[in-house]
Amino acid sequence: MPHDSVDEKDLELINALQLSPRASWAQLGRALALDPVTVARRWEQLNEAGLAWVTCVVGPALHSEFCMAYIEIECIPDRLDDTATALSAEPQVRYVHHLTGPYDLLAVAALRTPAEVSAYLRGTVGRLPGVRAYRAQMRTVGYSEPSRWRLRSLERSQQRALEPAGAPSATVGGARVDTVDRELYRLLHEDGRMSYAELADRAGISEPTARRRVKRLLAHRLLRLRCEMAQSLSGWPDSAVLWASVASQHLEATARSLTTLPDVRLCCALTGERNLLMMVWLRSLGDLPQLEATLTERSRHLCIVDRAACLHTVKQMGRLLDSEGRSVGHVPPNAEVFLGA
C-alpha cells in the first residue's frame, strides 16, 4: 500500500484507534460513517503495509516497578549500522534513534533495578564492537508518553461515538499478575487488536478468561494499548530530541505545562544536569527554533542546553522501522522485566 493511496478516511481510522484501540469494527464504522467491512479492510491494508499498528505497553501502575535508562552512544563511524542493529535486537531496548551530534545513537532500555542497568551497560552496551563511548541517565518521572499523542483528524462528534457507554473508571494497581498475564502482554504487544479467540488459543486459556483478564489488565492500568503510525504519514515527518535544565523546585510545573503542546510527544525527567528530555515531532526541522522559543516562553525556569535532530528511528517500542517509519519487524518484549518473574 503506497503512501499516496492513504486518504483522509485512513487517517481518521488511525486517529479513532488512537482513541479506542480495541473498538469494534461496527463502532469504528459508526464514527467514520463507513461500513464495518470497509473499516476492517482499510485497517488490514494499513497494517499489512506497516503504516499503522496497535501494540501494547506497560501501564502507569507499573512504571515504578522498573528502570528506564536513556543511553547516548558514540559509535565507530563504519560500525554504526551494526551497533544499531545489535541494540534493536535486544528485548530490553525499547527505542533506538539515530541522531545528529557527537553521540550517534540514543537507546532507551528498560530493566528492573539500577544494578541491572549497570550490568547491562558494562556487559552489553560497553562490549559492542562498534561502541566508542557511551553515557547514560535514568528516567525519574514520566510526564507525557507517545501513547497520548493524537492525529486530531476527527471531529468532536466522531470522538464521542468512540466513547464506550457506561465504561467503568480506571483503577490503579491492586491486581497481581502471573504467567498468563505475561503471555497476554506479549501477544497484545505483537497485535493489540488480536481477537479474544486468538488470544485464548495462543495463551492456552478459554475465550471468556482471555476477555476478563485483558479487561482487568487495562482497567487497573497495568497495560496500555496504543495505535502507532509511520511518522511520514502523520503530517509531522521530522523529529528532534531536546535536553533542558530546570531547577528542581520548578521541574514538575514546567514539565506539565510543556506536555500540552501538540509537538511534544514525550517528556520525562532525567538524572543529571540535563534533567528534562523532550522528544518532539515537527512539520519541518525549520520549525525547531520557533518551538524552542515557545518552550522557553512557557517557563522562564527552563533552559534548553542541547538538541539533536532524529535522522532515523530504528526501533520504537519493539517495532523495527524503515527510513519512512514503516514497521518492518517485531522484537518480542521481555515481559518478566515489566510484569515480574
Results as ranks from 00 to 15, higher is better:
Val96Phe: 02
Leu111Asp: 00
Ser147Met: 08
Pro114Trp: 07
Tyr120Gly: 02
Pro91Leu: 01
Leu106Trp: 05
Tyr103Gln: 06
Glu155Phe: 10
Ala161Gly: 14
Val108His: 00
Val108Glu: 02
Gly130Leu: 06
Gln159Ser: 14
Ala136Tyr: 12
Glu145Gln: 10
Gln158His: 04
Arg148Phe: 09
Leu105Val: 08
Gln92Asp: 03
Gly166Ser: 13
Val125Ala: 12
Gly142Tyr: 04
Val93Pro: 00
Val117Ile: 13
Ser157Lys: 09
Pro146Asn: 06
Ser118Ala: 14
Ala115Gln: 14
Arg156Lys: 10
Leu162Asn: 13
Arg122Ile: 07
Leu99Arg: 00
Leu106Tyr: 03
Arg122His: 14
Ser147His: 12
Thr124His: 10
Ala165Gln: 11
Arg94Ile: 12
Arg127His: 12
Met138Gln: 15
Ser157Leu: 10
Val125Met: 15
Glu163Phe: 02
Arg156Val: 00
Pro114Gly: 13
Gly126Phe: 03
Thr124Asn: 03
Leu128Ser: 05
Val96Thr: 12
Val108Met: 04
Gly142Ile: 12
Pro102Gln: 01
Leu106Asp: 01
Leu121His: 08
Arg112Val: 13
Tyr143Val: 04
Val131Ile: 15
Leu154Gly: 04
Asp104Trp: 02
Leu128Asp: 09
Gly123Pro: 07
Gly101Asp: 10
Pro129Val: 13
Tyr134Lys: 14
Leu111Ile: 10
Tyr103Thr: 03
Val131Asp: 01
Leu105Gln: 02
Ala165Pro: 11
Ser157His: 06
Tyr103Lys: 08
Thr140Phe: 06
Leu154Glu: 08
Ser153Gly: 01
Glu116Asp: 15
Arg94Lys: 07
Tyr134Cys: 05
Val141His: 11
Val141Cys: 06
Trp149Glu: 04
Arg94Trp: 09
Thr124Asp: 07
Tyr143Ser: 10
Met138Ala: 11
Tyr103Cys: 02
Glu155Ala: 15
Arg127Ser: 05
Arg94Gly: 13
Ser147Cys: 11
Trp149Gly: 02
